[in-house]
Design a protein around this nucleic acid. Structure first.
Lengths: 215, 215, 215, 215
DNA sequence: CATGAATGAGGTTTCATTCAT
DNA sequence: TATGAATGAAACCTCATTCAT
């Protein structure tokens, strides 16, 4: 579909010295700031490097092009979320279904809301920068973690089909995004999201195990 | 948040003559094509006009600037979806809850999947072009329609709180988007989405009416 | 050998209106000027457009990139030289060998010296911009014209082998270049070049027809 | 003509130690490689140093700037060719004209073809880096050597005018270059070049000594 | 009304060169 | 001495927008 050529997107060099690491982190942070304050359209490599307090040249030593910069940001974020969920799954083996779902959902919301600024910033670039690709990767990974966990539920016998797990993940991301983009991510709303999302997923999962499968 | 200046965004003139309508439609369609084939970043007014078979000048006669072009596209799409849902709501008054939810969800999925290319193209611009603003507008509108409908459910007494409706809408959009962006919107997957989404929303709504509210 | 990627090199649009033609010519002329005054290394598209009195954007409407600009210049020049020689060949059919050679050589030198500035400017870019490719093309063309002509020489029977014609062409270009790059292309030196080059080629051609072939 | 500023161009220090010599040679060789694989335009000091297996810093210890690096390469090559020809001249004193010419021409072609890659690489920079200047220097030197030699020809009385010697040198370089840039420097073609070039120069020289001078 | 040539600010990226380690 | 991270001027090129025809 998309004909846009995909040049190298991998970071150019791994920071090895302490100084470099600081530089790279400053660039990442600056990217988020600029994304939030100016929007993708007005995110320029110059602006990012200025904000990071380094020269453009330095930025380009670590990221071969603008895309790779954004990609790295997205990747790092997805990694954090995915591993938070994975950990939650591991922890919840052999619990009752409702408890499992609650724990996982809450950890997900917590992870996502830890830095609402980053989460929101990333929605703005995701589609442009290989987001769907990364989502697919993370989805596969979590598919496994969630599936394995659900199979150990102490109070359910039939394992949910993969598609149901996809649905649950999509619901978690979708509703969270919705709350964030509504602009008012107040603690209260976040709390409500957490509770409703738990309920939503719990009732879905429960209904799946009590309803004859659809297809 | 976003400091990006917002110039006039309303289309410059309403197409009244037949010829104009055709031109406008060609431009809209071309925009979608370019969006899909090149991505937002490489969507240019010149490219759009070329694809539409008109000159740039002509494009600028209907849309004062690029933003307004994209905005119009988004608006038109949201309008279609929103009104499809609204109609479904109107139609479903006084039905049992499960039936209501099923009908509304199915009409939503149908509307969204009618032109998957458009839906996908729009994900690419929504955040950039006042998407959240439009979403908020549409959300308000549907909040009302859904709320009104749900109040007439023949088998439920307590009306769901507004936030629950938001959750349901977010779930519908979120899961649909997820399926579309996974890249494989095969008829089979769409069918599965439809069924699971119905079940998901039904069980959520049902659980709400049988569970003491949380806060 | 050369890994340098070769993007589109063909001019972007043909000038159709009178105004455009003027613009294109101004750009060509400016390119020569800049080439001579600054050298290839310091020839920038901005500088060229400034010199031409147009904006960079305009330059890029006619030439998709810097390479294509230089390539066009080179191509146009080669065309002129090649057709001058071709014409000379056509004109000289059935003459005695010495006369043929003299006429062709003189027309070549004339053509090349008509605008010494252009000739010199082009030496500076030739290798970088597909020069050898164009030379090969022109060589093929002139190979034919010269070969055909030489076959009609009234006083020679055996036709020279293709390689000999290549040698003659290389000699003509090489010596002319040498005189130009020596920096002192005074009328006197040009006159000397003309005479010596005639003699050189005549004696070479003559020796070929009286000497047993080498291989 | 050329306004390009000319910074220090002399190599920064003469390599005295063995290690330095190796480094310098590696740099020279790397320069050639990069020149051939990337072209002048994409020859960067970093790339050269990488290829040479040293750091940029080290490169800059031996060459104060990029120009001087290229200049040194060119100079070294010209020196080799020039001295090969000079030696041939010295060796040929008092021989008959034809023999002289043959010997000199063959030694020239041999020298030039010994490393066709270097020869070709240098065509790419010669105009940019003081090539004509160096050519002029070498030309003067060879002018002398050739003139002296020719004066001793056992079978000719009148000495050729300096311009004729220039012509001969230009012919040698020009035809050799032509063969190299045609892209097919096969042994066969090189052999042909050698033979034809000998014939060409011989007949020219001979014709000069039997023809009344032109001006 | 339509056209498309022209504009030029501004974005991305490169690369010669320096200098602290 | 060698290294290579950092610099930032400057190059190439794009594209929203205007306006004479």
């Amino acid at each position: 579909m998309n004909t846009a050529s995909k040049p190298t997107i991998e970071p150019r060099k791994k920071p090895v010295q302490a100084r470099s690491t600081i530089t790279v982190e400053a660039i990442m942070e600056a990217t988020i700031q600029v994304l939030l304050s100016h929007g993708v359209e007005r995110l320029t490599t110059t602006r990012v490097s200025e904000r990071a307090g380094v020269s453009v040249g330095t930025l380009y030593q670590y990221y071969p092009n603008k895309q790779s910069l954004l990609f790295a940001l997205l990747e790092q974020h997805m990694e954090q979320i995915a591993s938070a969920v994975e950990t939650a799954c591991d922890y919840s083996h052999d619990k009752p279904l409702a408890e499992m779902v609650q724990y996982v959902v809450e950890r997900f919301v917590d992870a996502k809301m830890q830095r609402t600024d980053i989460s929101m910033a990333l929605y703005r670039i995701s589609t442009e920068v290989g987001g769907p690709e990364l989502v697919k990767r993370a989805t596969g990974r979590l598919q496994k973690a969630l599936g394995t966990m659900l199979n150990t539920a102490s109070d359910v016998n039939d394992k949910p089909e993969p598609f149901a797990i996809e649905m649950m993940m999509a619901t978690m991301s979708g509703t969270t995004r919705s709350v964030l983009e509504a602009g008012t991510a107040s603690p209260l709303r976040i709390q409500k999201l957490r509770e409703h999302l738990v309920l939503l997923c719990q009732s879905y999962m429960k209904s799946l195990s009590t309803t004859p499968s659809f297809i």
